[in-house]
Design a protein around this nucleic acid. Structure first.
Length: 943
RNA sequence: GCGGGGGUCGCCCAGCCUGGUCAACGGCGCGAGGCUUAGGACCUCGUCCCUCAGGGGUUCGUGGGUUCGAAUCCCACCCCCCGCACCA
């Protein structure tokens, strides 16, 4: 960190510049960021998202608002604990992450076996780097989500949600790790990402007094069943399940019992024992032989399936394996199998009667072990589902589509009690701990009832009313609200707050972070030790957050003072609602929408959030950021490498709206150079300035700055930081360059005015440099407490703007001519249009505009010999806006503007330029070109 | 599959809502010149094709359409990215 940075940090700190308290009558802005999770230090992605709030905060402060930008740290949940645990178990990958990627000293890593130490280390480091980057955060309100006082706040929230009926209990299938004794989410899996429980139909085939229970996802194919498959090598069990006698694979018993089936095993035997026996199918009543199928996985559902060779490639190939002797079976079984022919049950356009045969041929599949069978199955199932129609062979299902037949077959089988259900994972899932997962039905789980239509409606209302930056994000919120179902809001493990009425459960991490912005109003008092966790009773929080109850008696009961309670209430009612919450777009489908839901549930409308800012995700040099791939830039690395100001500016210039931001070293280095050269540029410019009268060029610069202020202000208001910072750093800089090139002598007064505005405009982005520059320019006080420039102080002089625009166009045209015309040239004559040509043009243009007949005008100026279509063409080229301005400023003296710049033109074009006015008597016009001149379009003659 | 966002002149990207001032902003890269002992930085000009008077031609994923006029509006299609839940 540089000495200057240290100095200004100290000054801001001493002045308490970013520690706002309620000020009655002063308008406020309350901005928040979704706290970062502390299993790692903050990175450039965090910085990018947070920087929007930082720039916005500083901007709003300059606009005179009382701005609160607080910060906190998320410790709740599984990953911190998980990393600690893996470290304790000696996992080398975790250790390497800490040491090589996060640069944590060995000595510290040793202590990371304690999860809270791990989190506190990263918290400390993150806080430090954020401070050094100059983030204007009120650190007095900082907290962690496991702080005792915060826990009281979460408990309060959950009591209320339960009372309101938004927390409900339910039963639900989950992917379960028997070792961790916990649901295994996508991110916790070694294998099987994206796999979720599917509901299998269990179809009972009568086998004497038993039911041989086959599992299927395609019950509508029952009429095409030709046999039943069991794995001859696997163990099967006769068991009493829910009071019935079932035959299923032995391994399925434990899973059935996890799914609330009542299971009592009776006798275990090998699958081969079943071969050659017959089982009676439901609906069809057909007696089907039981055949050996090695492809049958005993650990998938019941380990029994029925065979539909006409429509299932696996079944077809398994059957042929036996028929064609590729699989050795007993003679009796072989004879049975030889008798079996596929039974088609549906028609599929573009396929033969036996579609399974078509696909098998097409993919050149040889036997039932062929790896292409999976793809064949997928393809055929999907085709049949969308285009298949059941035939007469399917009896009552005839004429139905597959989807319809599926439903009807299930209804029919349920009627005859030949149907049961079981959840199963369609693919293998392995937990990070290495244990194979299965489906468990969890009972009495706690859910947030997001499916509740009234709650949804209220959440939608928040989105309807809130400001949204960018606007496109709004639709994503609406879709999320529609799609959101009940959310399990409690877990068994990790850090966090216990459900106050059911201490076996911890409030899940996303669910404890929905209204915590309100807690920033309380944490200030907790950190100042004006109130402690023990004082934060339900009644106290009811009073502070909802205004309920009598503060005097509540204070007494809670062993605190009425004064403190009233201050807390004032704090809350002053800052709330949240004016702006900014985050990456990845949080829309969960956190941000939860945030809306919970505010809708707990607070009156006047405290509902008012604004959402959404930005894209960050990539590094065009690639997704990933620690394991080494494609990772920490906040600290970036800040150290480029310096605080340049890092901030680079963040601002990266992206706008929901576009993904690409972090490039090259661009950041560029920003660094800009930042470093700004001060020398200002110094040099001022040294070259003199005191003189204001001229047209000064008016032009002032007018231009007016437009820049308007544009930058609008962009800041909409959180378009790239546009704002580009206007401020690139456009204004270019304007100044143009001014300096044009001006023979830059005017000190003009420059001072522009620099004064400029330094304030750059300050949200590069606050350290802005303070330095302000100091350099002799500004008093702190720039972070100055006023945002007003366009009113930079009046627009339309004629000066016109003059500069015409000059630019003339130079461009002249360059074109000079480029194209070869040969000797000694000077360029520029003929500004005559007064009569001018009048002609204006009269024509306004007549056309008023849709009047132009004939009279043409006649009136006939002696000028200017073709009317030239006039229209020029009017068209000039464009509506500028034409309006020209018509409004007929006094604009084009000759004066251009002749005043003849020296400049000569220098720019590298050839002497002589500006003359057409129609004057002394004009030098050997080629008779002057008559062609029109307003803003002078004629040229190259000598 | 569902939902959202995109495809622009070598690269990154602005413009699209509110059609014409768009051969299309800005940055990078590249070329020329200036400045400099030199390099870097900085400044200027150029960077789709053609053009000896400010002009012309062909462009904004593909194919249609609306319009006097489309990168911008409508339709269809192709391609890319992101999210899809018991988890931060």
């Amino acid at each position: 960190m540089s000495a200057r940075e240290k100095y200004w940090l100290k000054v801001w700190d001493e002045k308490h510049a970013f520690e706002p308290d309620p000020v009655a009558g002063k308008k406020k802005v309350f901005v928040t960021f979704p706290f970062p999770y502390m299993n790692a230090a903050v990175h450039v992605g965090t910085a990018f998202t947070a920087s929007h709030l930082e720039f916005y905060s500083r901007f709003k402060r300059l606009q005179g608002f009382n701005v609160l930008f607080p910060w906190a740290w998320h410790w709740t949940g599984q990953p911190i604990v998980g990393m600690s645990k893996r470290l304790r178990e000696g996992d080398p990958v975790v250790r390497r992450t800490f040491i090589e990627l996060d640069h944590v000293p060995e000595k510290e890593v040793a202590k990371f076996v304690e999860p809270e130490y791990l989190a506190s280390y990263y918290t400390k480091q993150s806080r430090q780097v954020m401070k050094e980057t100059g983030f204007s955060i009120d650190w007095r309100r900082e907290f962690r989500t496991i702080d005792p006082a915060f826990r009281k706040f979460v408990e309060w929230q959950y009591f209320h949600l339960r009372d309101l009926g938004y927390v409900v209990q339910g039963t639900h299938p989950v992917v379960w790790c028997p070792f961790d004794k916990s649901p295994t989410g996508d991110h916790d899996r070694m294998e099987g990402e994206g796999v979720s429980p599917a509901e299998f139909n269990l179809i009972k085939f009568h086998l004497g007094e038993f039911a041989l229970v086959a599992a299927t996802l395609r019950p509508e194919t029952i009429y095409g069943a030709t046999n039943v498959w069991v794995n001859p090598d696997a163990d099967y069990t006769e068991a009493r399940v829910d009071g019935e006698l079932w035959v299923v694979s032995s391994t399925s018993l434990s899973r059935l019992s996890e799914q609330k089936h009542d299971v009592v095993p009776v006798r275990e035997f090998k699958g081969s024992e079943l071969l050659g026996r017959y089982a009676i199918a439901p609906l069809t009543g057909k007696s089907l032989p039981i055949l050996p199928g090695k492809f049958v996985d005993p650990s998938l559902a019941t380990g029994v399936v029925y065979s539909v060779p006409a429509h299932a490639p696996y079944d077809l190939m398994a059957l042929r394996d036996i028929q064609e002797g590729r699989v050795q079976v007993g003679r009796q079984v072989k004879e049975i199998a030889d008798e079996i022919a596929p039974v088609p049950i549906l028609t599929l356009p573009g396929y033969s009667k036996v579609p399974a045969d078509d696909v098998v041929r097409k993919l050149n599949i040889k036997d039932s072990m062929d790896p292409n069978l999976e793809a064949a199955t997928q393809g055929l199932y999907s085709a049949e589902f969308h285009k298949g129609v059941l035939t007469q062979a399917s009896g009552p299902l005839a004429g139905l589509t597959v989807a319809e037949a599926k439903d009807k077959s299930l209804v029919l089988m349920a009627k005859t009690e030949r149907l049961s259900k079981m959840f199963e994972l369609p693919e293998k899932v392995v937990c990070r701990c290495g244990t194979r997962c299965y489906v468990k039905i969890l009972e009495n789980q706690w859910f947030l009832n997001y499916s509740n239509p009234e709650w949804k409606a209220k959440a939608r209302l928040i989105i309807d009313r809130a400001a949204m930056f960018p606007e496109e994000a709004r639709q994503m919120f609406y879709s999320t609200i529609e799609w959101l179902n009940d959310w399990p809001c409690a877990r068994r493990s990790g850090m966090g707050t216990r459900l106050p009425w059911d201490k076996d459960w911890l409030v899940e991490t996303l669910s404890d972070s929905t209204i915590y912005m309100a807690y920033y109003c309380i944490s200030k008092f907790v950190n100042m030790e004006k109130i402690g966790p023990d004082n934060l009773t339900s009644d106290v929080l009811d009073y502070v957050l909802l205004g309920k109850g009598n503060p005097a008696s509540i204070a007494k009961a809670a062993k605190t003072t009425e004064r403190v309670l009233r201050d807390l209430r004032t704090e809350f009612t002053y800052w709330y609602p949240v004016d702006l919450r900014n985050s990456g777009k990845d949080l829309i489908p969960n956190h941000l929408t939860f945030f809306a839901f919970h505010h809708a549930a707990l607070f009156p409308e006047k405290y509902w959030p008012l604004g959402f800012g959404i930005n894209g995700m960050i990539t590094i040099e065009g690639k997704r950021m990933s620690k394991t791939k080494g494609n990772f830039v920490s906040w600290e690395d970036a800040k150290k490498k480029y310096g605080a100001d340049a890092f901030r500016l680079a963040l601002a210039l990266t992206a706008d709206g929901m576009d993904d931001a690409d972090w490039r070293d090259r661009a950041a280095m560029d920003a660094k150079e800009k930042v470093e050269s700004l001060m020398p540029f200002v110094r040099k410019t001022l040294r070259s300035a003199s005191n003189r009268e204001e001229n047209e060029l000064d008016s032009w610069l002032i007018s231009t700055v007016n437009g820049r202020i308007v544009a930058a202000t609008a962009a800041m208001e909409e959180l378009r930081m790239r546009r704002a910072s580009a206007t401020i750093f690139l456009d204004i800089w270019n304007d100044l360059r143009h001014y300096l090139r044009r001006a023979e002598k830059p005017r000190r007064q003009t420059l001072t005015e522009v620099f004064s505005a400029w330094v304030r405009m750059i300050s949200p982005f590069t606050p350290f440099m802005a303070e330095d520059l302000n100091h350099e320019l002799g500004g008093k006080g702190l720039i972070c407490q100055a006023d945002w420039p007003s366009p009113r102080d930079f009046p627009v002089d339309e004629e000066a703007v016109l003059g500069e625009a015409v000059l630019g166009k003339v130079i461009e045209d002249a360059r074109n001519v000079l480029r194209v015309v070869k040969g000797k040239r000694s000077r360029l004559n520029v003929y500004v249009s005559s007064d009569s040509a001018r009048s002609y043009f204006f009269e024509m243009a306004s007549a056309k505009r008023k849709k009047e007949n132009v004939g009279a005008v043409v006649k009136k100026y006939a002696q000028l010999k200017i073709q009317p279509d030239r006039v229209f063409k020029l009017a068209f080229e000039i464009g509506d806006d500028r034409l309006t301005k020209l018509l409004a400023h007929r006094g604009f003296n084009e000759f004066k503007a251009l002749s005043g710049a003849s020296g400049f033109m000569s220098a720019e074009l590298g050839i002497p330029v002589v500006v003359q006015k057409a129609g004057s008597k002394t004009i030098n016009d050997p080629a008779n070109r002057a008559k062609d001149a029109l307003p803003t379009k002078p004629a040229f003659y190259l000598e």
